Structures are given as structure tokens and as C-alpha cells.
Simulated scan of single mutants.
Amino acid sequence: MLNKIIEVLNDVREKTPLVQAITNYVTINDCANILLCFGASPAMCEAKEEVEEFVNLISALYINIGTLTKEQEEASVLAVKKAAQIGKPVVLDPVACGAISRKKEIAEKLLAYGKISVVKGNIGEIKSLAGYVGKVRGVDSVDDGEGAVEACKSLAKSFNTVVAATGKTDIITDGKTTYLIDNGTPMLTLVTGAGCMVGALAAATAGVCEDKLVAGTAAIMAMGLAGEIAANSMEKVLPGSFRVKLLDSIYGMTKEDLLKGGKIRCL
């Protein structure tokens, strides 16, 4: 699997996939910057009068409902429907769906409207969307992970999609094959938007890889490993400096880094 992940990350750098992001205002700049460092091209096109036309041009669509306005909701529906019509991959990030009922309703609506390639959320969000009891604090998961694999598999099978749940151990599954990734660092929880950045990376990998299970796994591992590399490169690990190092680590990640540091298991 590591060799497949390496191939996907190389393809992102060689093909420069254009990622359309309808995302939350807290982390829009972070998502754009990490996509650039990853080798992709970000486009934060969200005006409802423009999104359908723009979907024709993109490699993948990223929908993040973290600060969902009415216009974003309408634009997301239009973009997802158009993407489904022309076969463009879509990554859905159901931020805070476990805390706010409207967000869960919107996420379920988007899943019903079009073919979602990857659903990426924290464990609390994924469990909530799958109909399990997920423990959340606002946009953050405080779930202990019990039943998480089963919830991910259930959601994946229900919507014929790939589900990626981030946590102490990340879970990626298509309902049949499941990978667990142990890369990461607690410092990622002290950087606003780390989860949103992972979702953006998943759209970039989905834009170059037909196998969306491999694509989702590659994005999750890249982010976790970049966090480890960033933290290990610092004499004193502080959140502000770590944020900068995280971008640098994504930009500079090599095949050797992945082969040496990638921690992945298949269930």
C-alpha cells in the first residue's frame, strides 16, 4: 500500500489537480496553502452563479460545511449535482454534524444528491452521520473511538463511498477493506483547520487516483506524517511555529519519508 500512496502523491505533484473548495471561512486560507504545498491548485469558487460552470474545469470538488451560509448551502447542492452528472470526484467534510442538526441534514442531503467519493470527518462526526452516538464538543471529537470501525463501514456501505475518520488512529474504509493509520501528533489538535486541510488534500488525491480508497488513505497518511516530521524537526514544539513547519513538511515530503515513517495496518 505504501508504494501506491507514493504513486498518488507523485501524481498530485506531476498533474497539479485543480481543486474547487466550498469551505468554511475559518480555514479557507489554510486549505488553499496546503493544497499549493501539496502540489495541487486551489480554487475557492463558491458563488452559486458560478459553481456549476466551474465544476466543468476541475479535477475534484471539496465541500466543507463548517460555517455553512445559505448561499454556500445552495452552491454546494448545485456543485455536487453537477459533479455527479459529469463524473467529477467529490469529498464531503461534514464538520460539526454531530453537534448541529441542520449540518447533519445538509450532509445527508448532499450524500443523497450525488455520488460522494470520500466522506472525511473526525470520529465523532462520522459516528453521528452513520447513526451511532458520537461524542463531540462543537467541531471537535471527544469520542473514545469505541465502535468507530463499525460506524465507518456502515456509512461507507450505506452510500457506496469511502469513509475516512480521523483520530488517534485514523480509519479509512470502503466498507470491505479497512486501513488504520497510526501517524500523527497531538500538535495537530492545536492548529485550527488541521482536519479541513486533510479534507482538501483528500480532494487533491481523489482528483488524480481512480481508487478512492487509496486516494483517501494517501491524504490521511500525508497529513499525519507531515505533522510528525514537523514536530520532530523542532527543538521546542510550539503551535505557531508548528503550523509553518507543517506546510513545509507537506511541501518537502519524499518517497523515503513515506517508506520510513508510514504506519499503516489493514484489517
Rank of each mutant, 00 (worst) to 15 (best):
P17F: 10
V19P: 04
A21K: 01
T23K: 04
I28N: 09
I34F: 09
C45I: 13
I58E: 05
Y62C: 01
Q72T: 02
S76F: 12
S76Y: 07
K81L: 04
K81M: 06
A83D: 05
Q85F: 06
Q85K: 12
G87I: 04
V91A: 05
D93F: 08
D93N: 09
G98L: 06
S101Y: 14
K104T: 05
I106A: 00
E108W: 03
I116L: 03
V119E: 10
K120G: 02
G121R: 01
G121C: 07
G121A: 11
L129M: 11
V133L: 13
K135R: 14
R137C: 10
V139Q: 01
V142I: 14
E150H: 04
K153P: 06
L155W: 12
A156W: 06
N160E: 15
A165L: 11
I171R: 04
I181K: 08
G184T: 01
G184E: 07
G184K: 06
G195T: 09
C196P: 03
G199D: 10
L201W: 11
A203H: 02
C209F: 08
L213F: 11
M221C: 14
G227D: 13
G227E: 08
A231I: 01
N232I: 01
N232G: 08
S233M: 11
M234E: 05
V237E: 00
V244M: 15
K245E: 11
K245V: 03
Y251M: 14
E256M: 08
L258K: 03
L259V: 12
L267G: 10
